[in-house]
Amino acid sequence: EPREEEAEKYIKRANGDYDKAQELAKKDGNEEIAEAIKEYKKR
């Protein structure tokens, strides 16, 4: 799923820090991806 791939990219950029990844996504205006990262975190 493209959303998950995007989320993974942010998580990698944030060195595995989900909260930081979420912030990066929000900064880029990717609210949807920020949500996907939140879902990811719950797994």
Rank of each mutant, 00 (worst) to 15 (best):
E5V: 12
K9V: 10
G16E: 03
K20F: 11
A25H: 01
A14Y: 02
E4I: 11
E5S: 09
E32R: 10
K27M: 13
I11C: 04
G16P: 00
A34C: 03
Y10M: 01
G16N: 06
E5C: 06
K42T: 12
R13M: 15
E8Y: 12
A14G: 03
E5D: 12
K41Y: 08
G16T: 01
R43G: 07
D19P: 02
K26Y: 13
L24T: 04
N15Y: 08
L24F: 07
L24D: 06
R43S: 10
Q22E: 14
R3W: 15
I33C: 00
Y10D: 02
K27P: 01
R43Y: 12
I37V: 05
E39H: 06
I33R: 01
K38M: 13
K27L: 14
A14I: 00
A21Y: 00
E31L: 14
E31K: 09
A34Q: 05
Y18W: 08
Q22C: 03
G29D: 05
R13P: 03
E5L: 11
E32P: 07
E8W: 13
E1G: 14
E8G: 06
K26V: 13
E1V: 13
A7E: 04
K12M: 11
I37E: 02
K12C: 03
E1P: 13
D17L: 03
G16L: 03
R3F: 15
A14C: 03
A7H: 04
E32A: 12
K12I: 11
I33V: 13
L24H: 05
N15K: 08
A25Q: 01
I37P: 00
N15F: 08
K12R: 11
I33S: 03
N15W: 06
P2G: 14
R3L: 15
E8M: 15
D19L: 06
K42G: 09
R3Q: 12
D28K: 02
K9D: 12
G29K: 05
P2V: 13
N30H: 13
P2S: 14
E8H: 09
K41P: 04
E1Q: 11
G16W: 10
N15H: 11
I37D: 02
E5F: 10
K26S: 09
E31D: 14
A36G: 04
